[in-house]
């Protein structure tokens, strides 16, 4: 299947992209194109104009410190998956990036696009929420920071204003992170996934916790109760089980051909427990 015709505009810089994207509702941005192009082919997305932000300068680069990882919006998910620095400082992001689609799609798909597409089955939204990251967005009214909790509104909808685009991601670092995803086969989009990032003190105490989900009715919901269960404890088995159960109970799930609500809830619980165990082991290792 072939995409219907549309106008094409190459953005030369962020300002150009902003003004091009602000031209109307049927204008869509393309970066890596790995989400948009299949939708164009299937005629699910019908933009009148596509603005290519894939060559905008200044939106690349990975910069990793102990405190945080900064990613340009056009960094590919393959680059995140392959980065040794990210693997050390943000293993949650490494693990999440490595299960996105397949290796060929990851070679073009961008971190900014993965977030901005706001697909409830995407992986990086949950990673962003769990790690309490934020994005820099630039638009007609200038630059602003959007916290992860404020970015995702509903499936395929973000809080980005018309003309606004994500330029940069800032993700607090922690070695105590993990991502667990259930896919039925390599070609599957995924059933559910759990992102976990913890801040663990020298004494093994969990100082803060981030838990978020993929594959639910909402985009990357934060599991508040799971986080509260964890914080202030040293992450023993009971705590892990309790937090996993809370994440599962609070998940807003829908039955579909990937499974019943009961099934998905059980899998959220199982994956949450696994991710927590791994994250805690990493934090204490």
């Amino acid at each position: 299947m072939r995409p219907p015709d549309f106008e094409y505009e190459l953005a030369e810089d962020v300002q150009g992209a902003v003004s091009a994207l602000a031209q109307g509702e049927s204008v869509m941005a393309i970066a890596g194109g790995q989400s948009l192009i299949p939708l164009l082919r299937l005629r699910i997305a019908r933009p009148s104009r596509v603005v290519d932000i894939g060559r905008v300068p200044g939106l690349t680069g990975i910069s990793v410190s102990d405190e945080s990882t900064e990613l340009g919006a056009l960094v590919t998910t393959a680059d995140v998956a392959a980065s040794d620095d990210i693997s050390r400082s943000n293993p949650l992001w490494t693990e999440a990036a490595r299960v996105i689609a397949d290796p060929l799609v990851r070679n073009l798909g961008t971190v900014g696009g993965n977030l901005a597409h706001a697909d409830p089955l995407n992986d990086l939204p949950a990673a962003l929420v769990a790690s309490r990251g934020e994005v820099l967005a630039e638009g007609p009214n200038g630059v602003r920071t959007i916290a992860s909790d404020d970015l995702f509104v509903s499936p395929f909808t973000t809080s980005l204003e018309p003309g606004e685009l994500i330029t940069r991601l800032i993700v607090p670092g922690s070695p105590s992170g993990a991502y667990e995803k259930l896919k039925r086969a390599a070609a599957d989009y995924g059933v559910v996934a759990v992102a976990v990032q913890l801040d663990i003190g020298d004494g093994g105490d969990i100082r803060s916790a981030g838990v978020s989900l993929s594959g639910t009715s909402a985009v990357a919901p934060r599991s508040n109760r799971a986080e509260q269960t964890l914080v202030g404890t040293n992450g023993g088995d009971d705590v892990i089980e309790g937090a996993a159960l809370a994440a599962a109970e609070d998940a807003d799930l829908a039955a579909d051909e990937r499974g019943s609500i009961r099934y998905k809830r059980a899998v959220v619980g199982a994956l949450a427990a696994r991710a927590l165990r791994r994250a805690i082991a990493r934090g204490n290792g």
Partner: peptide, 9 residues
């Protein structure tokens, strides 16, 4: 890099 040419404009 290996890419899917059906997913590149």
């Amino acid at each position: 890099r290996a890419v899917k040419s059906c997913t590149v404009l």
